[in-house]
């Protein structure tokens, strides 16, 4: 009896171990596939001609994705400009002011926001935000501005939940000390709690950026997908992700490799963002 119990324990442990490593395996396989499909083109066309090239005409032998890299960064920053203050405000309210009842109400609402499929955000963007911009601000409406607003809303849950956690992890004694010194609640938040939670909040911004860089469906719907580097917030643009999704269906041969090369660049950008975010979170734990 004891013996079978033991072996069952072992078997379950092994099973869970396999499950744990399967995710690593998937990551590895994805990596190999994207690199395997994308790297040969880097070899043939040249790294510079792809990353710094201005012309994307894959069926005619030009694979420049520089405008898309710039555009991806622009909308990501735009999303952060729009979403970060809102999200930080919300997290601060939740962590510092909200009573139990408000929290019970707000938390599930945020989770719901995170659960709405991106195509719904994109659809609402096309129906409401794009015409609004076209009529009141000019341009075609499909623009950095529209994309930033849509992405800004989409990254709210990510930023809120992570910065909320980091605000909650600031010890109560900090707040008590500050209040004991005669500081008001806002002074305490501003001078003590927010600086103490700074690294976690920054990490939440970075992860929000990762979400924005990776978003595809909603972006295709509201960005207009023009290939030029946008010069105003009302200009249309094409991001790295939308380039892949937009053209994958029809791509063959070098065109397909070109899209995988886009994927390689995207992968590297996301890795850098995740690395930076992890670095910040670690520093917070260490400090």
């Amino acid at each position: 009896m004891v013996k079978t119990f033991f072996s069952r324990e072992q078997a379950i442990k092994l099973l869970l171990l396999l499950a744990a490593f399967s995710s690593l395996l998937f990551l590895f396989v994805i990596f190999i596939f994207i690199l395997g499909e994308g790297l040969p083109l880097f070899y043939r066309v040249g790294l510079g001609n792809i990353i710094l090239g201005f012309k994307w005409a894959p069926t005619k032998g030009s694979f420049g994705i520089f405008p898309m890299i710039v555009s991806s960064y622009m909308v990501t920053l735009g999303a952060l400009l729009f979403g970060a203050p809102l999200a930080l405000g919300c997290a601060t309210y939740l962590a510092e002011y909200a009573g139990r009842k408000t929290k019970i109400f707000l938390k599930p609402a945020l989770e719901l926001l995170a659960g709405i499929p991106s195509v719904v955000y994109g659809f609402l963007g096309v129906i409401y935000i794009v015409p609004l911009i076209r009529e009141h601000l000019g341009g075609p409406g499909f623009s950095i501005l529209a994309t930033s607003v849509v992405l800004g809303i989409m990254i709210l849950p990510t930023i809120i939940s992570i910065s909320f956690d980091s605000l909650m992890s600031v010890p109560v004694t900090y707040r008590e000390a500050s209040v004991a010194m005669g500081a008001t609640k806002w002074q305490t938040i501003q001078k003590v709690v927010l600086p103490a939670a700074r690294s976690g909040i920054l990490a939440s911004f970075i992860l929000g950026m990762g979400r924005a860089v990776g978003e595809t469906m909603a972006v295709i719907m509201v960005a207009g997908n023009a290939l030029k580097i946008p010069l105003s917030v009302l200009d249309p643009l094409r991001t790295l992700t939308s380039n892949i999704a937009l053209e994958l269906a029809y791509a063959a041969g070098d065109h397909r490799s070109g899209l995988f090369s886009t994927g390689v660049v995207l992968l590297i950008i996301i890795m850098i963002l995740n690395f930076v975010a992890n670095f910040w979170v670690k520093r917070r734990v260490a400090g």
Partner: peptide, 11 residues
């Protein structure tokens, strides 16, 4: 001739 880069693209 090439289609200009400013032109919007839909799929």
């Amino acid at each position: 001739e090439y289609i200009d880069d400013r032109i919007m693209v839909q799929d």
